[in-house]
Design a protein around this nucleic acid. Structure first.
Length: 489
RNA sequence: GCCCCCAUCGUCUAGAGGCCUAGGACGCCACCCUUUCAAGGUGGAGAUCAGGGGUUCGAAUCCCCUUGGGGGCACCA
């Protein structure tokens, strides 16, 4: 079995493309087949190496690898069926287009956009299906001479036969189309650039692809491909059309309505393992109630035949949950490593490792580390700018209670030396201090939390104090006290 | 408009004729734990399996129709 993924470097890696890649990858690995990556860069105007890099890098990031094709952006082709970039196969397309012309299955067309548009409008008015009227199918010699003299360069159209096309889709079963409804479509532009429906067929044959697994949006295009394959005398691969990933309104997932770029998820701190697990279940399930799967486990269990037919709505809440599951399953050391890019260099690895335990079960995405722990590395002035004096007031109380708590904390922490500055000791003393002034624990801790972390929501208070250290904790209490004084009590 | 595909809780799904008075997960709501927030635990609401006809002793599961949704009909991929 030889399967392929054929992204077009005209944009960053799309979630839908990523999932199709995943399904192809899983299919190849599960069956021991070969996975090919092909870059569809015929549209030179829109294709860039940057997008190629984004696609390849993010695919690698997910853990998806391929046996043939460029392994790095702009890199050399690897594999026995090179080239793997369409831009390197232009001669072949020209040859095949010529063959079609010679055999009479394709013809040149000189119609202008305006003429085409006029015909389409007429057809619409007459309630006929809009398709090419074959005006250029058999030009008279005089017409041909006139066209060529006119200096207009023609496109090449494929002559579609009026026949029923039926195929056995790997996941949908028997599907039948009537090609009589299709118009003769363009396979080569008038500037000589071959078009998608044509090159995809030529490439799949050249690369000996046996199973074309792609998005459902290509289902309706398949009869065109099969007609081309037959006209060219190629072997017909099996086709499998996987359901689309949907926006919340159930339309095809699009940039306008959803975040579609894989990079964006990566930058927010979603883990590749979570993305993979999540995407795998958008249209597939092992048939059991298990739902946490590593790439290796998916490779073991995934069967393309079990993929659903219906589209699946992208659900961010579910992704968040899965990401949290993977985050919490990591050891502190592993998590510290993953968190590294989101934490300033000034924070030493050793310190970071100490931070992990207090944020681990609170993180949804790696980027959340900032909101949770930035108070540890930001200067006192910055932290104090995060809150106003009212935030220091405990739920049940005002400035007086806040002041009492802050002063109590100052006195209590002041008595501790650095050696005693541990979460356990601090907690013990804090509870005693609260009791001493007759405050409820929560009301006593609240002002301290805001003073030290700058927020009402934070990691556990005593661990936070320990990590911040005696000096800085005391300094922040001092600042809070000053801030309290700014407003008359 | 034409063609094709699809249809189980809000969402992802289990279910391939009797095990289903439809199970799990996310989300939601309670309660427990608790210094905040999380995490965790317990419980709950939530789907007459889109609707209607068949087939069958028996249908979420098979067939047909309707409805709804989606995709495709480019000198984009």
């Amino acid at each position: 079995m030889r399967v392929r993924m054929a992204p077009s470097p005209t944009g960053p890696l799309h979630l839908g493309t990523a999932r199709t890649s995943l399904y192809n990858f899983l299919t190849a690995r599960h069956t021991g087949g070969t996975y090919v990556l092909r870059i569809e860069d015929t549209d030179a105007a829109r294709s860039t190496v940057e997008f190629e890099r984004d696609i390849i890098d993010n695919l690698h990031w997910l853990g998806i690898s391929w046996d043939e094709g460029p392994q790095v952006a702009g890199g050399d082709d690897v594999g026995s069926h090179a080239p793997y970039r369409q831009s390197g196969r232009m001669d072949r397309y020209a040859e095949e287009a010529h063959r079609l012309l010679e055999s009479g299955r394709a013809y040149r067309c000189w119609c202008t956009h305006e003429e085409l548009e006029a015909v389409r409008r007429e057809q619409e008015a007459a309630k006929e299906p809009p398709r090419y009227n074959r005006r250029c199918l058999n030009p008279t010699d005089a017409e041909r001479v006139a066209f060529e003299a006119d200096d207009r360069s023609p496109v090449i159209r494929f002559q579609v036969e009026a026949e029923k096309i039926r195929f056995d889709d790997v996941i949908r079963g028997e599907v039948e189309f009537d090609n009589a409804l299709l118009g003769d479509f363009v396979i080569v532009r008038n500037d000589g650039v071959p078009l998608y429906h044509f090159v995809v067929v030529v490439d799949d044959e050249a690369m000996e692809i046996t199973h074309v697994i792609r998005g459902e949006d290509h289902l309706s295009n398949t009869p065109k491909h099969i007609a081309l394959i037959r006209a060219l005398g190629y072997r017909e691969p099996r086709f499998g059309h996987i359901p689309l990933i949907l926006n919340a309104d159930r339309s095809k997932m699009s940039k306008r309505k959803s975040q579609t770029a894989m990079t964006a998820y990566r930058e927010e701190g979603y883990l590749p393992e979570a993305m993979v697990n999540f995407m795998a279940f958008l249209g597939w399930s092992p048939g059991t109630e298990e739902e946490i799967f590593t790439l290796a486990e998916l490779t073991d269990r995934f069967e393309i035949e079990k993929v659903h037919k219906g589209g699946a709505v992208f659900d961010r809440d579910r992704l968040d949950h899965l990401n949290g599951v993977y985050l919490r399953a990591m050891t502190d050391e592993q998590l510290a490593l993953r968190l590294r890019p989101w934490v300033p260099d000034a924070v030493r690895d050793d310190d970071l490792r100490h931070i992990v335990p207090i944020v681990k079960e609170r993180l949804v995405r790696l980027a959340d580390i900032t909101g949770l722990a930035a108070f540890l590395w930001e200067p006192d002035a910055v932290v104090s700018s995060w809150y106003g004096p009212e935030l220091l007031h405990p739920k049940k109380g005002g400035p007086a209670e806040a002041r009492a708590a802050l002063e109590g904390a100052r006195g209590m922490l002041g008595e501790l030396d650095d050696a005693d500055f541990s979460a356990e000791v601090i907690e013990q003393r804090a509870r005693a201090a609260a009791e001493a002034i007759g405050a409820k624990a929560g009301d006593f801790f609240s002002p301290i939390r805001v003073a030290v972390t700058g927020r009402t929501i934070s990691p556990p208070l005593f661990d936070s104090l320990e990590l911040l250290g005696r000096e800085r904790s005391l300094a922040r209490l001092e600042i809070a006290l000053e801030k309290l004084g700014e407003v008359p009590a």
